[in-house]
Design a protein around this nucleic acid. Structure first.
Lengths: 366, 366
DNA sequence: GCGCATTACTAATACGCATTAACGATCCGG
DNA sequence: CCGGATCGTTAATGCGTATTAGTAATGCGC
């Protein structure tokens, strides 16, 4: 008996659609009179030595056109064992309603670089309570669906991150993170950039310069101080504790009296760090205004970063810009390298010096 | 003969990486002491009658957690299931350097709604100018990796889009697009919103109202005019061509004389459409200012949309806001419905009326 | 003409997961 | 205690493409 055995085919039940589904390589092959493998070889521009005659190539391509064949990316990626997907994880929403605090500028670079390298991006948010994330303790595991993952912000739980790294999953953190052993990261080179600002001031003739910073231990802060002091040393200027004013609440502590005191002591330039809040710069800016300083005639100001939005109207502060798009791009480069099993690339990205209008030559004392 | 044939494995060369690769269902199965099929059954919450003992389920889930297993989206997709991924594709950069032109506000809603429904988002980087796989005539094809795809902006090539639709791939376009037969879209309900603005003005007592619009045929423009006229009709006010001022260059054509003419004719309220450039509103605003109109005392102004960035400082114009996040959310809802094989959901999203400060009662003629 | 290299192609997998027929075990009624 | 029903699990297969070993055909040198 030849009867179509009930046993038949396990596997999927194709639910024999009358609809002509879109063509497969097999159908192209049939039409061109070649094998499916040949179709694959013609279409995939292998670097390998597989040689195809011009005649065959033409037949295949004709068949492809006439059938309107388009490859199935799911199958390609499965067979090639690569998804060409990079994850982007942010613990807070990737697209917060408040644009100010968003990762937008980074994403500009991330998207560009990923596109240039042929990767697509999978967006994950730790904040998503419902649904996919199943925001349990293992929420981070979801990112394993990508070939590697980029982390934005410092809210990702350290242990989970390290677990991924330990498992050999390619991970890059955007923002310095050397307290986590083995975690790859990219960050802005605040040391060099801060040093450059000080060098600029020194070059203008300033001999006493004070740094105003907030009272925390974030690498972003200590790096700036480090660069600041390095710049002083390199210019042969006095460093030491007196050169750094550190306060948990600069807006309150940086009084007019204190500012006048510095001026009387011969300080001619002030440098503030940039922070989330922008408090250091706001305090410095406010005190200088209150005392009636004509900047840069009476004294010079510089900002190690960009001004907070509420002060972005004023004169452009001398300082440097954090190249956020470039940081994003650098992170993608490093991640792509890790995915490819290569060495991590350079983690530090240079900041761009911003001349601005708040620094000039020191006043001449007669 | 049973000998282990040298012929061995064609197919891929696994390139035996020492690196622990991402775990597969097979490894989960081994760890749990069950078969791969069982793992699949446990993970995929089939409606089918496959019954799994609580004991086994627990063992499998434990193994999944301990290995950090996550299903491979490509494989899931290929096996004719779904991978809980929704695509987002924009032909221009999704994160342009110029924030003004970005899709950002839409993405806020897209992300939220997708997360709420348990989908992850894949950002297909279609913008790639140069570089690897992204560009090319079949760039759109990549989206087939996801369960469905959202398209932003009107630059996606129509033929490719329709091809996807024809193949039964779920697609939703954000922004009205009825010139493409069969393409699902969501858009703002400009007709109702414009009508509401007119009703508001009529309610304040205005009897003659003029619409200033640019000279194009975009649905966004014609919808507004349609709603405007509908509003007039409903209030029993005179419509007709005289009520609409249409100009390719309103800033040039909307002269002070013309404005005075309208005022002399008893027009007490003016409405401008919002466009990319914001020219209509800018022209109206400028002319009114030039003529010395005290708004809303001498005449009322309204804007069918939001003001351009350069005019966002002035008084809040009466009009409506385009609910971009809601549009994004609505698009995801519709896409999810299509993916589930259901009917498309409501394509129109209501705009929010914005009272503003530029409209008031008409001046009293003695 | 025989070995050997080269060319042009095909056969046979494998990728990771979902699906389903089939199978062993247990339970039940008669 | 035997046939059938039910439950829980597995073996076997397919999705569509990429890869590679193998092979038939041809060319080349001597």
């Amino acid at each position: 008996m030849e009867e179509p055995r009930k046993r038949a085919r396990p596997g999927r039940s194709p639910a024999p659609t009358g609809r002509t589904s879109r063509p497969r390589q097999a159908e192209v092959a049939r039409l061109a009179g070649v094998s499916q493998a040949t179709v694959s070889l013609v279409l995939g521009a292998r670097k390998q030595g597989a040689t195809i005659s011009e005649e065959t190539r033409r037949k295949v391509l004709d068949a492809v056109r006439s059938l309107g064949y388009v490859p199935d990316p799911a199958a390609s990626r499965l067979a090639a064992a690569r998804n060409n997907l990079l994850g982007v994880f942010s613990f807070t929403s990737t697209f917060p309603t408040d644009v100010q605090h968003s990762y937008y500028p980074f994403l500009v670079g991330v998207e560009q670089e990923a596109a240039a390298r042929g990767y697509d991006l999978v967006l994950f948010t730790g904040s998503s309570t419902g649904g996919a994330g199943a925001a349990g303790p293992h929420a981070l595991n979801r990112v394993r669906l990508a070939d590697g993952c980029l982390f934005l912000g410092r809210h990702a739980p350290a242990d989970e991150l390290l677990r991924l790294v330990a498992d050999g999953f390619p991970v890059v953190h955007l923002g310095r993170r050397d307290e986590l052993e083995g975690l790859a990261w990219v960050g802005a080179d605040y040391v060099s950039a801060s040093k450059e600002v000080v060098s600029h001031l020194a070059g203008l003739g300033h001999r006493r310069i004070v740094l105003v910073r907030e009272d925390d231990e974030a690498p972003a802060s200590t790096d700036r101080e480090h660069g600041f002091l390095k710049g002083l040393a390199e210019a042969g200027l006095p460093g030491g504790p007196a050169a750094v004013f550190r306060s948990a609440d600069p807006e309150h502590d940086l009084t007019a009296e204190r500012l006048r005191g510095w001026l009387d002591d011969g300080v001619t330039a002030f440098v503030a760090e940039e922070t989330d809040t922008g408090d250091a710069w706001r305090a410095l800016h406010g005190a200088a205004h209150f005392v009636g300083i004509d900047c840069p005639r009476d004294a010079s100001l510089a900002l190690l970063g960009s001004p907070p939005p509420d002060l972005s109207d004023g004169p452009t502060p001398t300082g440097f810009d954090i190249p956020r798009p470039q940081l994003g791009a650098a992170a993608v480069r490093m991640l792509a390298a890790l995915v490819a099993g290569e060495q991590a690339t350079e983690p530090l990205v240079a900041c761009a010096f911003r001349p601005g209008t708040t620094a000039g030559a020191p006043p001449i004392h007669l």
